[in-house]
Design a protein around this nucleic acid. Sequence first.
DNA 1: GCCGTTTTCGGCCCGACTGTTTTCAGTCG
Length: 574
Amino acid sequence: MADNHELARLFEEIATLLELKGDNPFKIRAYQSAARFLEELDEELPAFVASGAMEKTKGFGQAIGQKVREYLDTGRLSFYEDLKASVPAVLFELVSIPGLGPKKALQLHEKLHITSVGELEYACRENRLIGLPGFGAKTQAKLLQGIEYLKKHQGRFLLSEAWPLAEKIADFLRRLPGVDRVEVAGSIRRRMETVKDIDIVLASDQPAALQQLIAGMPGIQQVLSQGPAKVSLKLVTGINVDIRLVRPEEMATALHHLTGSKDHHIALRGWAKERGLKINEYGLEAAAEQRLAVQDEPRLYQALGLPFIPPELREGMGEIQAAAAGRLPELVKESDVRGVLHVHTTYSDGSSSLAELAAAAQRRGWQYLGITDHSRTAVYARGLQLETVLEQRREIERLNEANPQFRVLAGIESDILADGSLDYPDAVLAEFDFVIASVHSFFRLSEADMTQRIVTALSNRYVSILGHPTGRILLAREGYAVNLDAVLEAAAATGTIVEINASPYRLDLDWRWCFKAREKGLLLAVNPDAHAVDELDSVRFGIATARKGWLSAGDIVNTRPAREAWALLRRKRP
DNA sequence: GCCGTTTTCGGCCCGACTGTTTTCAGTCG
């Protein structure tokens, strides 16, 4: 399977290289769709080709088919290698600057001999861009700002940062005079783990009249652009906001358009076209140019002969075909959660007490709470020594006796040591209601060693849940090198539950892998990994991740009643 | 680069805004 992903990556890179060369956009798309197809392909590449399936696959014609064969035969792609050699590496870096695309980046490289972002910044400060054709003082100033932005935030923000901010802005806009409706759209509505900006749709009978009022909103650092249909702002927090102004009857199609994703639109518009319909942000048009009114998104999909596709699924990952075939899952909801299984208390590195957390969990309508402080090796997190474990156990028993309506489970988050063994002997692990096993050290093992380490841990019959499977920290740290496919296979084979760590800094397992976990028939646990009472609410981000990964309540252990969840947590035990 | 019971050529999703221009290319989503 590694071949599939490797070739997908090569095709993806070819697309980027062609883009930088200003090649035909449709050719670029052809490579992108081939890459996406390979990424999702379940079959091994050699079988896919040998069986003749490739010839029958749309998007694999002569040129791309020949490249797949060359890659299989030689393990290389000469087209890619030549292309790579012909495009200066600096262009990759330059196009990540907002406002700078392939054309202008190429000009800067050729005319000003720019070889790094740093050099471009310097050239801007020296006013050297102004003489170039197509460049002016404003472009130069904009690029300088773009470089600043990039240096500060890598151009992205956590969902947990952007989502509440977007809701706050939407509330402000709703109170402006003449405003009919306001909705948050874009990648926030699709619940991407990180987002580039905030997209909002505003419906009003006099949309153009609102421009000035919007530009007067508090917290704005700069108005980036302003037209009758769209206002773009930069907030003092650094994030950009696009507000699209439409008439009330255009709300549904505009919201749909601005929710994206781009890939979903390309696929859906193709689907519409086959049925003689045209979609744009203002409505649905029959071929004869007359616009059909669409009241809401469900009716938009209905007009296309499809059931409603929830925003989280609109990523161009086969959702349209699944919808057409009636195979869309019933997505899990936040209200399905009946308890959570990963929290830290003041016994280790948490800042709320066990009793406070239990009370807060019960207030949220949950029926149980799994306490999982750190194990003894995690000295950085005040991991529990054996005597402290016993002390905590007694407190849990007292709480359970005092409140039979609510169940506190005595768990532990045990470190997976470098060799794959756990931090306590089996006899101790057996005393816990359940065990989460997590990697917290030796992140830099080779992929093979890390994979073996985790697979070994999963074979332990007391390990109920694999915690944050890749160890990534969003926008800060890549996950460790690990063959996740092999890990998920091992989890399936041993009956280990896999965590969707709902901390907005982690969201690990990633939603793209939830999709695969579901295919392997795995059970998952959406856990806040809370270190304080407020962090229990992180569950919403975990549920968003699960939904984005096509998961139903049945795929999540902590949507089950306490007794059933308890049994599932212990199903590997003798 | 791919595709075709409308087609082997001419399409390919569609539109907004800016800046540098005198009609539009570039960028973005």
